[in-house]
Amino acid sequence: MSGDDELDLMLGTLDGLVLRTLTWRPAHGYAIARWIHDTSGGRFRILDGALYTALHRLEEQGFVDSEWGLSDKGKRAKFYRITTAGRRHLRTESARWDRYVETVARVMNAGEAPA
């Protein structure tokens, strides 16, 4: 998880995870990082820097919006919200992920090829 290659490889997936997180409610970057960490049981080891890069890129692509607001503890924080385009993007991405997972699973679980 430290090389650039690996990061790039993970990028699409990370985008999906971030967007998914934002479907429930707007959140700031820290909350998103914690949520992904907690729901994945800490199995993904994602660098927070990469997470922020993903967030800002998503904003550039128009999939999320940002706005400054106050956190639970009354501190100024940047909140992200998923846009309509973001939701659409998430739908296609998760469908593609499902197909990917299903295909990988089918190959992995197949019996020995007939001789």
Binding site: L47, D48, G49, A50, Y52, T53, H56, R57, E59, E60
Partner: peptide, 17 residues
Amino acid sequence: DEFGDVEAARDRLARID
């Protein structure tokens, strides 16, 4: 440690923004 290279991230984010 969890964050990675803060300075590099700062530059990257500013560029995107």
